[in-house]
Simulated scan of single mutants.
Amino acid sequence: MAALTVSISERSVVLGEHVIPGRWLRDHGDDIDSLNPDSKQRLTDTFGIDPQIAPAAVHVDGAWLSVDWSDGVRTGHDLDRLLAVASSRRSLWPRTGSGFTLPAGVDLWDSPAEATWFDFGVLDDDAAWTEALDHLRRFGWAAFDGAELGEESTMRLAKRIGYPRASIFGTVWNMNSGSFEHQDSAYESFALDVHTDGTYSHDGPGTIVFAQQLKTGEGGDSVLVDGFAAARDFQAQNPEAADLLTRYAVTAHYVEPGVHLVAERPPLRVDEHGTLVQVSFNNYDRSPVLPDEGLVDDVIDAYNGFRAVFNDSSRALVHPWQPGRVLVFDNWRCFHGRTGFSGERRFKGCYTNHEDLEGAYRVAGLI
């Protein structure tokens, strides 16, 4: 690398001709405390960063930039990657109109109702299945009890919606705590912030099916949040920021040996009619993309502001688990996470496509 001039200007780091706002840079470290070195998933507490954060000192060692921050933290940055990002700043997507409307015929919820459990036997009764399917359509989720253990129950539910979707995890996959079959935070035991899956996929999974096989210890409940209700409330609070999130594409990635997936879409994706069709938000998998000059604070404020709305614990619907229970939810609508846990936790899981979910609604006469 040719000699590069590095300096501090107010709350920014200057790399040659590039001015990198400190608020953005503090969130995009490549050191082992900021980024998992294997999965490249984010470890930094994005939402705890002081908006007034400032660099106190900078040091370059070869292709590595170290920054000491006003909060006492030191981050490290791959200069080649940082310069590539700084040279490809992100602008807003053009759109006709502004804001968004909500889909018709759904029941938005901003506080949790008591969980409704359908007997898994409804899959064998068309009328009863239609009732469960309508619950999924209206609320974004449906929960079942009494399923037989093993892969077949997961397959049966997926086939009632469409067909199991093959992904990097397989068709029907095992999600067993501590197994680390894939380099993903889902296999850890710590609490997971609510998020959507497949932000690194051009066509994110339409539904997610989880079926518990084994549970020991405490905790590990699933948490659901209605993303459409959160988007509605965020737009009411800050329409300009909500509109920005329909026009600013966030890039995400999935990395493991032999695999490197990348996709991008706005956190609030609207169709050509201005109707919200998908929420997409996973801070663990978010890639480093630097907004255009003049957009950095607006983008960060909008991103953090939306997260503050949907991460409010009063919105969370908690699903306690035991073997034989199955949960399916709309990954384009609901955020999901989990509480931390001890002991062992084993699941079968699979994805289905959203067009198949919509097709199931049409076949049942629900839309």
Rank of each mutant, 00 (worst) to 15 (best):
P55D: 02
A56C: 12
A56F: 02
A56W: 02
A57S: 12
G62N: 04
W64C: 07
L65V: 04
S66L: 13
S66G: 10
S66N: 11
D68L: 13
S70D: 14
D71I: 10
D71N: 13
D71Y: 11
G72M: 09
G72L: 10
T75H: 10
T75F: 05
H77M: 08
D78K: 11
D78V: 07
L79W: 02
R81M: 04
L83P: 00
L83R: 12
L83E: 10
V85C: 00
V85K: 00
V85E: 01
R89S: 02
R89M: 05
R89K: 13
R89C: 00
S91Y: 00
W93H: 04
R95S: 11
R95E: 05
R95W: 00
G97I: 04
G99L: 09
G99W: 10
T101C: 09
L102E: 11
P103A: 14
V106R: 15
V106N: 12
D107Q: 15
D107P: 06
L108K: 05
L108C: 07
S111V: 14
P112F: 11
E114Q: 15
A115I: 15
T116E: 15
W117K: 10
F118T: 02
D119K: 05
D119S: 11
D119Q: 10
F120I: 05
G121T: 15
G121W: 10
G121N: 14
D124L: 09
D125L: 10
D125F: 09
A127Y: 08
A127Q: 14
A128W: 07
A128T: 06
W129A: 00
W129D: 01
T130E: 09
T130M: 06
E131Q: 15
A132Y: 01
D134R: 13
D134K: 11
H135K: 09
L136E: 02
L136N: 04
R137Y: 02
F139Y: 12
F139V: 08
F139K: 14
G140E: 06
W141V: 14
A142E: 02
A142Q: 06
A142N: 06
A143D: 03
A143V: 07
D145I: 04
A147C: 05
A147L: 06
A147M: 03
E148W: 01
E148H: 11
L149C: 04
E151I: 13
E151W: 06
S153W: 08
S153I: 12
S153T: 13
T154H: 05
R156W: 05
R156T: 10
R156C: 02
K159S: 12
R160A: 08
R160G: 00
I161F: 09
I161A: 04
G162L: 03
Y163P: 00
Y163K: 15
A166L: 13
S167R: 08
S167Q: 08
I168R: 11
I168E: 10
I168F: 11
T171Q: 12
T171H: 01
V172S: 01
W173D: 06
W173E: 06
N174W: 08
N174S: 15
M175T: 12
M175Q: 14
N176F: 13
G178L: 07
G178F: 04
S179T: 13
F180P: 04
Q183L: 15
D184I: 14
S185P: 08
S185W: 04
A186F: 01
A186H: 01
Y187A: 03
Y187T: 02
